[in-house]
Simulated scan of single mutants.
Amino acid sequence: MKPHCWVRASDSDFTGPLPQPRSGHTAVNIGKSMIVFFGGLVDKKFLNDVTVYDIDNNMWFQPEFMGSGSDGNTGPSPRAFHVAVSIDCHMFIFGGRSGANRLGDFWVLDTDIWQWSQLTTFGDLPSPRDFAAVSVQWKRLHIINEPPAARAYHSMNCVGSRYLLFGGFDGKSTYGDLWWLVPEDDPIAKRSGISSSEVVPERDTTMEEKESQREGDAITELQKRLQISGLLSTSVQIVDEMEDKELIQQALRVGGKDAAVQALRDHWVRSAPESITLKEIAPLLHDYQRLITRHHM
């Protein structure tokens, strides 16, 4: 696989109004002609707008809708951390979060006529949920330059041989920047400032996949031996600090129970990544998700 590089999108790449900064949104490819962005969150405000990237014309636009739901609205209520998938010309939306509420409604958007419909007659729907996931298969790309700022709850979509990254949240700031991830021979790759002479040869991908599998097996084995829970299981409910047994166990090593949780967080902020022990990783990530959710509320 060819080496790839990150390139900040420029104004000349697009026409039309860009989507506003957000995180927790969804973005799905409708065929090879468009990407449909829905919902998300910015400054504690949940969104239900739709912005479309027309791939063929490099143009952003916001369509006008028809349709109605059981509550009389023309489309889904504002939300973030929902699930979206596309089938043919349709985008399906399920669940998510709005304020302190988990949602369980199911909607479909027909992008041929821009009409929302609420689906209520397809048997028993799943229970309300947020932070759900859709199964994917990972493959590591060989990247030859510095990536964008670290973030979570962003979107990334395939546009031909390129990938388009948008938005996200880093714990403090909500992003509205757009980035291309492109092969090194892409015409816009020269904007990254990387020359071909600087490219490091890519490792054998078969070996990488085997090593990744061995690492995964090793981590699973360590989790069993050290009795730490799955790090990012979507079945884990977000609980209060005082009910998070793993967090309290780590916090008690720092100080008394009442002040220990904040002391533990301060310890993590000050710590270098390599100094964090394996037993701390699961409670750290669960606490990060809890704080992100609380910040959004």
Rank of each mutant, 00 (worst) to 15 (best):
S195H: 11
C158T: 14
Q118H: 03
W60Q: 14
H267R: 11
R294P: 01
K139T: 13
F106E: 08
L247I: 03
V136S: 11
G69Y: 04
A9R: 06
H90Q: 14
E280I: 01
G75A: 11
S86Y: 06
S98M: 11
R270Y: 01
T15A: 14
V159R: 02
F131N: 03
V134Y: 06
L291Y: 01
F92L: 15
T15G: 13
I281R: 08
R270L: 12
V134C: 14
D43Q: 12
G96N: 06
F106Y: 14
R140P: 04
W116F: 14
E246W: 00
A152W: 00
R253F: 02
V239Q: 07
W114I: 09
M156F: 04
C158H: 10
L284I: 02
Q213R: 11
E184M: 15
S23Q: 06
R22S: 10
V7K: 08
S271T: 05
D11T: 13
S12Q: 12
E280Q: 13
A133H: 05
R8D: 03
V134M: 12
T121M: 08
L103T: 07
A189S: 15
D186W: 10
T26G: 01
D71H: 11
T15R: 15
A84F: 03
K139L: 10
Q213K: 10
N48M: 03
D56M: 09
D240M: 02
D177E: 15
W60C: 14
K44L: 13
P183Q: 13
H295Q: 13
